[in-house]
């Protein structure tokens, strides 16, 4: 476990020293502040659209950060040959994968902290009220959700050689699930066979990332999700992440590295 944590720390350091997260944060902040500065019929209390724009940008940034960070881990290590120096140490392939995953996931967690802190500042300054339980749920659900695309991107990097292809495919897949996942079964029921059955199977097999999207609850000040349901969602994400990482390990464990 120490080896995995040490590798995770490397990933975290790398993210903090790259420009990606700062660029995303800057863009999110800039667009949110510009949107918030708009004159909406001289009413300064209009706040929900600002919250929605900010949260949507945070979601998009989260996806981009998670997938691009995870997708480049293995290819970068292989290209720079740091993979060999690392695996020449007493590090198992599983520890390597777990360390990479943990590093990417923790890095996303740190980034989300800053993003949501900014969101909280913007929301509180306009609403004169805080919804700590809701915001905590939103941040934690998104953080756990991101574990799935990270695992997918890590597994993808064992299948696709080019990091860009892997990142693109994973992002397209994740955005597709986020936007359309909950409707697939509905669509499937209206399709002729065998398309209906195939789509239904896909619906049940896919990790439903849209479950973790509680932006509507936060934007419109609905009460938070019951805590048992929240915990169930976290466990759902953990289960899918574990499954995908195990598949990745099965691919990686006997792979010749050169």
């Amino acid at each position: 476990m120490t080896a995995a944590l040490a590798i995770a720390q490397l990933v975290l350091l790398e993210l903090l020293r790259r420009k990606d997260v700062y660029v995303l944060f800057f863009l999110t902040g800039l667009i949110t502040l510009v949107a918030g500065a708009a004159n909406i019929f001289e009413d300064a209390r209009v706040v929900r659209y600002v919250k929605e724009i900010c949260l949507t940008l945070i979601w998009i940034s989260g996806f981009v950060l998670a997938v691009t960070t995870a997708a480049r881990q293995l290819p970068a290590e292989r290209e720079s040959r740091t993979l060999f120096t690392l695996l020449a140490k007493p590090v198992s392939r599983w520890q390597f994968l777990a360390g990479k995953f943990l590093g990417c996931w923790l890095a996303c967690g740190v980034a989300l902290l800053f993003f949501y802190a900014f969101f909280g500042f913007v929301a509180a300054s306009r609403e004169r009220d805080v919804d700590l339980a809701g915001w905590f749920q939103a941040a934690s659900l998104q953080w756990f959700m991101l574990a799935v695309p990270i695992a997918l991107a890590l597994a993808g990097s064992l299948v696709w050689a080019a990091a860009s292809s892997n990142a693109t495919l994973t992002l397209v897949g994740c955005f597709g699930i986020w936007l359309l996942g909950r409707h697939l079964h509905k669509v499937a029921l209206g399709l002729p066979e065998p398309a209906g059955t195939l789509l239904t199977l896909l619906y049940f097999a896919l990790p439903h990332l849209e479950l973790f999207d509680v932006r509507d609850l936060i934007v419109h000040r609905w009460p938070p999700v019951p805590w048992l349901v929240w915990l169930g969602a976290l466990l759902y994400a953990a289960a899918y992440t574990g499954l995908i990482l195990n598949l990745a390990w099965l691919l990686f464990r006997r792979r010749a590295l050169n």
Binding site: R182, Y203, L211, L217, V225
Partner: peptide, 9 residues
């Protein structure tokens, strides 16, 4: 999944 998902909307 549909039933569970409605708790988040």
């Amino acid at each position: 999944i549909d039933a569970f998902g409605r708790r988040f909307k």
